[in-house]
Design a protein around this nucleic acid. Structure first.
Lengths: 213, 213
DNA sequence: AAATTAATAACCTGTTATGGTTATTTTTTT
DNA sequence: AAAAAAATAACCATAACAGGTTATTAATTT
């Protein structure tokens, strides 16, 4: 038996969801809320297995709802509900802690399947959103991710980012510690930074954030 | 017109793919390879829009193929082809640079749709794999991500991770640099590390890698 | 062939970090 | 109320790092 709570401000769609989910014997409606504020009050004490959250709520958005309430609901999964396939907010909702979503135009069967998939440890989502998530993984290794650094400098920077000392890096690369030091100085110059950590950050920011948000 | 190359060592399935894709007027078979080695040789000079790669190849796996060949194929998208829904390697393939996948049991229509979705900027994948990707986003903000550090120590560590010096941190927190130094020493002890970078890594590893792989 | 860039390496100086000890005050827990 | 933990802070010695200069060699480009 999967317990489900619904947070949806639109009366019509909320009732529709309730009706569709009541049909299935293995689903149990736990709580029904018409605003994020109401849900924030009630959810922590009444944790469902799955919370279906409309992404566009009145005062607070569904994303804010998840962010505030998630720390208290370790065992609840959030299923976002959006009107549009390619809503940018769906991606942000997934980042905030949602695990999947359904569209408002979905059929009864699709909604039920999404819930089952979610409960089985899957993440139902459209290919468009999936790509945005995947792009975070790729981190642009392909093209100009070197920031003007030479391959040797990238090598040194990579070892630096593991927390190795100059001596340890020089042993690994079979060069002198002075040379490592020298590479670092050049790296700092090119990245316009003053120390290891800033260099590492600049590097990983470039690799990660190009695709983020 | 979408140009497609196929890397598949199984003769039967390779020919089946060719036949299915030839049916569609907007798809053009570009190259057909029966091993990763062959593809590594040929692909860089003959870049297709989409490369369909079997995940299990003889000597080198499809993942290795992508890793070695991707730097030369900035405009090619990789569509993995696997026998199983929940093949762990699919997830690794996505990390390596693939953008979606199809299953060997897929219908002709599903294969064609996956290609179209991929070409339109989507990432076709199953909910199971999607979840593994999503979990990377969540980073376990919820529960015990503090590693036994006090809130003040977390504060210091957070500022450290931006590359600030002791003095800069002490100014920001209105405490003495000696105190910051002291917090660091305690942080290092608790995390069993020797320097800033290792501490930062341990922290972010805990937040990121708990779900990875 | 000449010039440029990359990789190598050493020197010096000053700053920053690390590791150890000790100690006071405040907050939290028992 | 007593004990424990957290936050504060100083001292010392050593190690590591940062920034500057200079220089040789190898590889690449012009």
């Amino acid at each position: 038996m999967i317990s489900i709570s619904i947070i949806e401000d639109n009366n019509f769609y909320r009732e529709l969801l309730v009706r569709v989910l009541k049909e299935k014997h293995f689903l149990k409606i736990y709580g029904v809320y018409s605003s994020a504020e109401e849900a924030i009050q009630e959810l922590p004490a009444n944790a469902p297995d799955i919370a279906i959250v409309d992404i566009k709520l009145k005062l607070k958005s569904g994303i804010e709802l998840i962010e505030t309430v998630k720390p208290y609901l370790a065992n609840t999964q959030f299923l976002m509900c959006s009107g549009f396939q390619n809503d940018e907010n769906i991606f942000n909702a997934l980042k905030a802690g949602a695990s999947g979503y359904i569209m408002k135009g979905s059929t009864e069967e699709e909604i039920q399947n999404a819930i089952i998939e979610l409960h089985n440890g899957g993440s139902p989502m459209s290919p468009y959103i999936a790509r945005k998530v995947i792009n975070l993984l790729h981190r642009k290794k392909t093209s100009d991710n070197n920031l003007g650094l030479s391959s040797r400098e990238l090598e040194v920077l990579s070892l630096l980012s593991r927390g190795l000392l100059y001596k340890e890096i020089s042993d690994q690369l079979n060069i002198s510690a002075n040379t490592v030091k020298n590479h670092c100085k050049n790296i700092y110059k090119r990245l316009h930074v003053q120390n290891k950590i800033e260099a590492i950050n600049k590097f990983s920011n470039y690799n990660l954030q190009a695709y983020a948000s």
